[in-house]
């Protein structure tokens, strides 16, 4: 096969991966780099479980060709916090009971992070949060608590930003 070297930075770490031209970023993240927090489902950018951050912005990794992200920086759910140092969004999701089966949660948290990072210190309304996560489906339908969690995290991030 016509394999090519792909250089990408995933969660701050540089990787060199030998890829085939038709591999998606999702395939590379899961199968080659082992970031299993990024989930696979619809493969058509409808459901959002494959969401990762590409240079800080949420995108669907299931329909992005890996060869198109040469030299880019990717953040997966593994890259935004760890059990000892949770991201405010992760803390809020736990506190608000926003996780049911959990399959959509990596995508949900990264979608929310991308949105909150666009306007540092913003406190979005519930409608704005709903709109921001519209591309990420929770088939447990736990949206109310997910919105609670994003609003809680946004408040805390805004407060800590104001103190600094």
């Amino acid at each position: 096969m016509n394999r090519k070297i792909l250089n990408i930075v995933v969660n701050g770490e540089s990787h060199q991966v030998l890829i085939e031209p038709h591999w998606t970023l999702l395939q590379v993240l899961r199968n080659e780099i082992g970031m299993m927090g990024t989930k696979e489902n619809c493969l058509e950018a409808e459901c959002g479980v494959c969401t990762v951050l590409l240079d800080g912005k949420a995108i669907n990794s299931c329909i992005l060709l890996a060869g198109q992200v040469e030299g880019c920086s990717i953040t997966t759910i593994e890259g935004i916090g760890d059990p000892e140092h949770l991201h405010p969004l992760q803390e809020a999701f736990i506190e608000c009971g926003a996780v049911q089966c959990g399959y959509c949660i990596p995508g949900m948290i990264l979608t929310a992070k991308s949105f909150l990072d666009e306007n540092p210190g913003c406190r979005p309304s519930r409608d704005e949060i709903r709109e921001a996560i519209a591309g990420t489906l929770c088939r447990c339908t736990g949206y109310r608590k997910i919105i609670d969690a994003v609003a809680t995290a946004a408040d805390r991030i805004a407060l800590s930003g104001a103190k600094q």
Partner: peptide, 12 residues
């Protein structure tokens, strides 16, 4: 622009 897909699609 704001009614095309979700944020993930609109970012790319």
């Amino acid at each position: 622009a704001s009614v095309v897909g979700g944020h993930q699609v609109r970012n790319i």
